[in-house]
Amino acid sequence: MQPKSGANGTAVTEFILLGLVETPELWPVIFVLFLLAYVVTVGGNLSILAAILVEPKLHTPMYFFLGNLSVMDIGCITVTIPSMLGRLVSHKRTIPYGACLTQLFFFHLLVGVDCFLLTAMAYDRFLAICQPLTYSTRMSQTVQRILVAASWACAFTNALTHTVAISTLNFCGPNVINHFYCDLPQLFQLSCSSTQLNELLLFAVGFIMAGTPVVLIVTSYIHVAAAVLRIRSAEGRKKAFSTCSSHLTVVAIFYGSGIFNYMRLGSAKLSDKDKAVGIFNTVINPMLNPIIYSLRNPDVQAALWRVVLGRWSLV
Rank of each mutant, 00 (worst) to 15 (best):
S140D: 01
G67A: 11
P56N: 05
N8D: 12
L265P: 03
L18G: 06
T10Q: 12
V89T: 15
Q301W: 09
V143S: 10
A165Y: 12
D274H: 15
L35K: 03
S271T: 15
V308E: 00
T212N: 04
A122G: 07
M62H: 14
A226E: 06
D299I: 03
L187N: 02
K57L: 06
Y97K: 04
I129Y: 03
F65I: 06
A204P: 11
V277I: 15
V176A: 09
S47Y: 04
S5L: 10
F64S: 07
Y135A: 01
T212Y: 15
R145W: 11
P132A: 12
T78G: 10
Y293I: 09
A37L: 06
A150T: 11
D272V: 14
C182N: 07
A303E: 02
M121L: 15
W312N: 06
I253Y: 13
L197D: 09
V148P: 02
G43Y: 10
T142H: 08
N45D: 02
L197E: 04
S140T: 04
L101Y: 15
F188Y: 05
V315Q: 11
A155K: 12
K273L: 11
E22P: 09
A128D: 12
S242F: 14
C130V: 13
R296Y: 13
T219D: 07
F203A: 06
N8G: 11
I208K: 03
S194Y: 05
